[in-house]
Computed example of a mutant assay.
Amino acid sequence: MISFDNMIAGRLPYGGIEPARFDGELSDRFRDAFNAVEARAAQGSSGFRELPRDRALAKRTLKLAETLKGRFDDLVVIGIGGSALGTIALRDALLHPGWNELDRRDRAGRPRLHLMDNPDPDTVSSLLGRLDPGRTLFNVVSKSGGTAETMALFLVVWDRLTGSLGPGRACDHVVVTTDARRGALREVAESRRLRSLPIPESVGGRFSVLSPVGMLPAALTGIDTGAVLAGADGCLRRCGSAELQENPAGVLATLLHAADVDGGAPIQVFMPYADRLRGFAYWVQQLWAESLAKAVGTDGEPAMTGPTPLPAFGAADQHSILQLLMEGPRDKA
């Protein structure tokens, strides 16, 4: 359910969307957009929508997780952008808030979870210095297989592992998640005989959390991946209607699109009040920005368009940015 009373004209001291538009122009606008998206999906451009029902890939991921179960005290995911933000969102939402501070018994033998994305030498060396190489698993994640930051971090980690364990044992401490056939990381995985899992070709990196990108770390740390995938499938079904009032995702998209193109509010604020949704807000920021910012329009003409997502966190940001949001320029939704 989405509550949008505060975006309706009459509830706001200024502007707002006229209720009659929902049964008329906005419904027609959404129906056209929905049908265009469905047509693209039919051509195979939205592979992420198939992930909740890809039982073979889910089974393969769980099988590897079971093989690695109990062997490691720490799991380090090396990735950036879509190769990390979805996993961070899952970690924050579904693991114990103090997961890495729990002892091994309270974690039921599952590993601590670390994300290594920004190649800052101080942060990286500090983390690696705290870990026992012989009890640490590194999951290197890149859809393209050539992400510069990820590959640089992998080289640092590989040097540390081989220096401590030797090349043979080092291979047992790395899992690669990348494109099934292409990219430098795929070549590295095959040449060094590293364990690996595929990201389907039709799945873009920022949409890959329901692939092994997110499901392997989730399974290793004890998150019920079956429930996650079932929930995602349920959301797909709920959002499968071209009728605006029956589609919660459609309502959200339509409201924010109208705020941007009709209401002069191109800044869209995502402000969860639950700490568990902090990672989700940053993930939404990436999904929004990378999906909707376009230099060229669908007609091939220059566009330079896209709403600006702004993550914030209540109640802390009520005491930092809220005054700007409430009393500043009327350019935010």
Results as ranks from 00 to 15, higher is better:
residue 178 T to W: 00
residue 178 T to A: 13
residue 180 A to I: 05
residue 181 R to H: 06
residue 182 R to A: 12
residue 182 R to G: 01
residue 182 R to F: 11
residue 183 G to N: 08
residue 183 G to Y: 06
residue 183 G to S: 09
residue 184 A to N: 09
residue 184 A to D: 05
residue 185 L to E: 01
residue 185 L to I: 02
residue 186 R to C: 00
residue 187 E to K: 14
residue 187 E to G: 11
residue 188 V to F: 02
residue 188 V to G: 00
residue 188 V to R: 03
residue 188 V to K: 05
residue 188 V to I: 15
residue 189 A to S: 12
residue 189 A to R: 00
residue 190 E to V: 05
residue 190 E to C: 01
residue 190 E to N: 06
residue 191 S to M: 13
residue 192 R to C: 12
residue 192 R to D: 02
residue 192 R to M: 06
residue 192 R to Q: 15
residue 192 R to P: 07
residue 193 R to K: 08
residue 194 L to H: 14
residue 194 L to T: 00
residue 194 L to I: 01
residue 194 L to R: 01
residue 196 S to C: 00
residue 197 L to D: 01
residue 200 P to S: 14
residue 202 S to N: 05
residue 202 S to Y: 12
residue 202 S to W: 00
residue 203 V to K: 02
residue 204 G to Q: 11
residue 204 G to N: 14
residue 205 G to R: 04
residue 205 G to Y: 01
residue 205 G to A: 15
residue 206 R to A: 10
residue 206 R to Y: 06
residue 208 S to F: 03
residue 208 S to T: 07
residue 209 V to D: 06
residue 211 S to H: 07
residue 211 S to F: 03
residue 211 S to C: 10
residue 213 V to P: 04
residue 216 L to G: 03
residue 216 L to A: 05
residue 218 A to I: 05
residue 219 A to V: 10
residue 219 A to S: 12
residue 219 A to G: 08
residue 219 A to D: 01
residue 219 A to K: 01
residue 221 T to W: 05
residue 221 T to S: 10
residue 223 I to Y: 03
residue 223 I to C: 12
residue 224 D to L: 10
residue 224 D to A: 15
residue 224 D to M: 13
residue 225 T to C: 14
residue 225 T to V: 13
residue 226 G to E: 11
residue 226 G to A: 11
residue 228 V to N: 08
residue 229 L to R: 09
residue 229 L to D: 05
residue 230 A to K: 15
residue 230 A to G: 06
residue 231 G to P: 06
residue 231 G to Y: 08
residue 232 A to T: 12
residue 233 D to I: 00
residue 233 D to E: 13
residue 235 C to M: 07
residue 235 C to Q: 15
residue 236 L to W: 13
residue 236 L to C: 10
residue 237 R to V: 13
residue 237 R to K: 11
residue 239 C to G: 14
residue 239 C to E: 15
residue 240 G to N: 12
residue 240 G to L: 06
residue 240 G to V: 08
residue 241 S to I: 04
residue 241 S to W: 05
residue 245 Q to H: 07
residue 245 Q to W: 02
residue 246 E to S: 15
